[in-house]
Simulated scan of single mutants.
Amino acid sequence: MTPEERLAELGLTLPQVVPPVAAYVPALRSGDHVYVSGQVPVADGKVLAEGKVGAEIDPDRAKELARVCALNGVAALKSVVGDLSNVVRIVKVVGFVASDPSFTGQPQVINGASELFGEVFGEAGKHARSAVGVAALPLNVPVEVELIAEVR
């Protein structure tokens, strides 16, 4: 089954690539790798949530938002490679979680993104990862996800 077929089976439609909010591109190919810039939880041009996880944002909601970030990342990846079957592997994922100082569940939040990559790409979606708590993120979003993919 192709990644596009898996997306359809999951009932997911790739969104339009989120336009950059500063001086960068959403995704860039260099050799056999595509570097996808940090993706935030935006849908239909609107930020889906603002605030810190563990304060204004519940961890389960933040996990759902990380999934939205990952879906936006897949859209950016597809914009560079055309067919998602050209993805050999999701190599590395970095997730940033705007966290209340007492919140330490960043890995569980970023699982929302990691699980989506596994569902869409199967074995090729297994990746190395970092989940980092930060004081603030652009647009006051609670989560941001970036990735590196190996492609053919």
Rank of each mutant, 00 (worst) to 15 (best):
A98K: 12
A43T: 09
P15S: 04
F117Y: 06
Y24L: 11
A128I: 08
G82S: 07
E4T: 09
E119K: 13
A43H: 09
A70K: 04
V17D: 15
V40H: 10
A149Y: 01
K78A: 10
H33I: 09
A75K: 04
K78E: 11
K126N: 14
I148H: 04
K126D: 15
C69D: 12
L10N: 03
V21D: 15
G31Q: 08
V80R: 10
V17T: 13
A76F: 01
G82L: 06
V151W: 00
N86R: 12
L48H: 05
E115H: 10
V36F: 03
K92N: 13
K92D: 15
V134W: 08
A70I: 00
L28K: 14
R6H: 14
V87P: 06
G54P: 03
E144L: 13
P142Y: 03
E150A: 11
P138M: 05
G51D: 10
A49C: 11
N111S: 11
S85R: 11
R29M: 00
V132A: 07
P26H: 09
V42W: 02
R29T: 04
V120L: 07
I148M: 06
V151L: 08
E56K: 10
Y24F: 09
N140Y: 07
G45Q: 12
V151G: 10
T2M: 01
V40L: 13
E119R: 15
I90R: 01
V81H: 08
A8I: 07
G112Y: 01
P3I: 01
E5P: 00
I110E: 00
T13H: 14
D100I: 01
E115R: 10
G133F: 02
P41I: 01
D60E: 15
V94D: 15
A131P: 05
G38R: 08
L84R: 00
I57P: 02
K46Q: 15
T13L: 14
L7P: 08
L71Q: 09
L48M: 12
L7K: 11
P107T: 01
G73H: 00
K126W: 10
K92S: 13
V25A: 15
L77D: 05
V34Q: 03
R61M: 09
S114M: 13
V88Y: 06
S102L: 08
D100P: 06
L147N: 10
E115G: 12
H127L: 02
L139K: 15
G82I: 02
E50I: 02
A22S: 13
G105F: 01
A135D: 15
K52F: 06
A76Y: 01
R29I: 02
L77Y: 01
V87N: 02
P41C: 04
T104H: 11
L147S: 10
V88G: 13
K63H: 04
D58A: 05
L14S: 09
G105I: 03
H33S: 13
N111E: 11
V40M: 15
Q108I: 07
V109F: 00
P26I: 03
D100W: 00
E56Y: 05
L28R: 12
A131E: 09
H127G: 04
G51A: 10
V145H: 03
A70F: 01
E5N: 06
G82V: 05
A22W: 12
K78I: 02
S99E: 07
R129C: 15
A49R: 14
L14M: 09
